[in-house]
Simulated assay, not measured.
Amino acid sequence: MSLIGEERKDYILQQLNLEGKVKTYDLVEKLKVSSETIRRYLEELEEDNKLKRVYGGAIKINIAREEPSYFKREVLHAEEKRRIGRAAASLVEDNDVVFIDDGTTTLQMIDYLLNKKNLTVLTMSVAGLYMLIDYNNRGLFNGDIYFIGGKIDSPQSRSTGTLAEQMVESFYADKAFISIDGLMIDKGVTSFDAQRGQLARKLIGHSKQSIIVTDQSKFGQLQFFKIADLQEIDLIISDVAAPKEWLSALQDKEVTWIEAK
């Protein structure tokens, strides 16, 4: 592999986001350069606050933070949500405009957006907003942040309601990342809360690509408010492969399924 220095460093950061760590000897073999060159790259990236060097390689920066109160109650499937968030973030490209909703799964995306360039992120998540502001202040997030404001639902740490919907109507995004409470092939995707569900529906209508993020516990669940039919969705990212009995219907509805590894 013949890459210039900056491309090699971008590769290192990509691997770091995917795996959480990189090893010097793996990078030497993959990039076909000396261990001294790899160490120099890691030193430069650490100086830029992009990673933390450790013996034998480097690890992703782990910035300690107090978890939002609503997230503390969402302890089930935490590892699955991290994998899904990482896979979702991998779909975000430099210069993208993206909606990120208030779900605890979409929240996991933010840690993996730090090496993207010139993003515009719009969110109604109070917790997500704080994370983005913190990363921006640390020079780790590159882009613009918009908070979709409205009536604050304090227990759920989000904004909802008519004002938030009106604000969404002022924007168009490349991608919308939406968490859900229920998923059925014939009933579509659903939400516990009507106001939140209506806002999610607005995100779908104002995005070129609609992406659902969900762990398998939502499969077969039907909740109060219908967000959308499956044919209105472009991609589904989950912690497992699509159930075999859903494959034909997903193909008919032209929905792509991604299993987060």
Rank of each mutant, 00 (worst) to 15 (best):
L13V: 05
L16P: 01
E19V: 09
T24I: 15
K30V: 14
L31K: 02
K32C: 04
I38G: 12
Y41M: 13
L42S: 05
E47W: 03
K52S: 08
A64V: 03
A64D: 04
E67R: 09
S69F: 08
F71L: 14
K72W: 00
E74Q: 13
L76S: 09
L76R: 10
E79M: 05
E79I: 12
R83C: 12
G85W: 00
S90W: 04
I100D: 06
T104Y: 09
T106A: 13
L113M: 10
L114V: 15
L119H: 00
V121N: 08
M124A: 11
A127R: 07
G128T: 07
M131I: 12
Y135T: 06
N142E: 09
D144R: 13
I152Q: 11
S159D: 04
M167T: 11
M167V: 12
E169G: 10
S170R: 12
F171D: 03
A173I: 02
D174L: 08
A176R: 07
A176W: 08
A176P: 03
F177S: 06
I178A: 05
D181E: 10
G182A: 07
D186E: 15
S191R: 03
F192N: 11
A194E: 15
Q198S: 13
L199A: 09
L199Y: 09
R201K: 15
S207H: 01
S207P: 03
K208F: 11
I212S: 06
D215V: 02
S217N: 08
F224Q: 05
A228P: 01
A228M: 05
A228E: 03
D229Y: 01
L230T: 00
E232F: 08
D234T: 02
I236S: 00
I237R: 01
I237V: 10
V240T: 15
A241K: 13
A241I: 08
P243I: 00
P243L: 00
W246F: 14
A249R: 12
E254P: 00
W257M: 07
W257N: 04
E259W: 06
E259S: 12
K261V: 11
